[in-house]
Design a protein around this nucleic acid. Structure first.
Lengths: 227, 227
DNA sequence: CCAATATTTAAATGCGCGGTTAATTAATTT
DNA sequence: AAATTAATTAACCGCGCATTTAAATATTGG
């Protein structure tokens, strides 16, 4: 009987002074904060491994708020896709606009656009590796159904046309060139923390990477045109 | 009292006729089968998401066998690393032997060796994406501590030397070239199911990919040397 | 100023996980 | 052939998760 129930309040974490009830004014953007916290957790730990408790805590609310605003785990993911992911996909697509008839310009636009987009949204490569590249990823369906037509298939078609008119290395495969482009942009940026650790260097910034990538794409390993 | 305890045996799954007790002869390789099942599950679902129950079921035993043979979840991973993963790393390294002073031969050896190794061990790219590339992956430490010196740093050093003696495109970064090589081999092979779905084609086999990759690496996008 | 409504928390619920234990049977040793 | 050891299963335990419910508090509308 010594402790009937004094709010045991574990001293760690954050000051849990909030009692139930509608708050006074201040917090009107709980929904937005939840979306941001969810996106960050998805990128850092993967969608499946993201705990609603952790997302809610990061947003400064209780997990029940996720049910209240979205309806559940699956609906939260859906909302993140619609309101956070798809706008960024549109941004990437925008960097290709009006370059459809020049393979070189298209490649430059893709490489540059990808770097620019990731500069603004650093979570993108991590999320992509976990949820698109990995089989069973939560965003794979999204890529295949809603993005494939807008970006990769469009690029491949443009490359095929350039190749037919003799303006692209005929030993390449237009579709695989799209894969190579992703492997030379999204992949190295996703792996940046890894190779910085492997090569023990921070001096290799994304500008250097962009330079290197364009050099490799245009000339390959060769030292020069005229030996 | 109508059902005192008739072995309720749920009719689905597999015939669970096995009663407790040491089996008669046949199954002497349970440990090996558990290692294989664990590796497969790691590649398919990720290490963290692999349930001991599922691994045990796939190996045809009960989860308690994992405790019996290995001691627990962590020890099982350790055994898979030592007895399944590291031998394959050695195999990859073998493909580079004796080519250290020729950047071109090194690149060819890496691309060809990677394709050959993955042909024999198709789980490799999937596992690598999930557990090395992704932050927080269970095999990242392994790469940094035990593999980095044997493969990536060695390649980078050889490329730097070739570049200094004028036998490699001077606009490239030797270390980033290693990253590019991985992005043009391991990555496309890991993503194969994805781009086969995106481009709606199975005709792009790994031979075509190898051809394309070497073409891109040697000449880049250019149509030819002498225009 | 009172009733209805919106927003929030704490607590309860139920399920599935990793790991362990006791019992059971075969093989091996003496 | 008896005793010991090895291999195996079923059943159990406690924990952490997503979700639901009830209560509490503020805002809004009449």
């Amino acid at each position: 009987m010594s402790t009937p129930k004094p709010p045991v309040r574990p001293p760690g974490e954050r000051t849990r002074t909030r009692r139930p009830g509608r708050p006074s004014g201040d917090g009107r953007d709980q929904r937005e904060r939840l979306l941001d916290a969810a996106l960050a957790h998805y990128a850092d730990h993967g969608v499946a491994a993201s705990r609603l408790r952790a997302i809610a805590t990061a947003a400064g609310v209780t997990p029940a708020m996720i049910s209240y605003y979205f309806g559940g785990k699956a609906a939260l993911l859906e909302a993140v896709i619609e309101e956070r992911l798809l706008p960024v996909v549109g941004e990437i697509r925008g960097h290709l606009e009006g370059r459809d008839n020049d393979a070189g310009a298209l490649v430059e636009g893709f490489v540059g656009g990808m770097h620019a987009t990731i500069e603004r949204h650093p979570w993108l490569p991590r999320l992509w590796v976990r949820e698109v590249l990995s089989e069973g990823g939560a965003l794979r369906e999204l890529l295949v159904n809603r993005i494939a037509e807008q970006i990769p298939r469009r690029l491949a078609a443009a490359f095929a046309q350039a190749q037919q008119s003799g303006r692209l290395n005929p030993d390449l495969d237009p579709r695989l060139l799209v894969v190579s482009l992703v492997g030379l942009t999204l992949f190295p940026l996703a792996a940046a923390p890894l190779w910085q650790q492997v090569f023990d260097s921070d001096d290799l910034d994304t500008t250097a990477l962009q330079h290197h990538t364009l050099a490799l794409l245009t000339r390959g390993l060769e030292t020069d045109h005229a030996p």
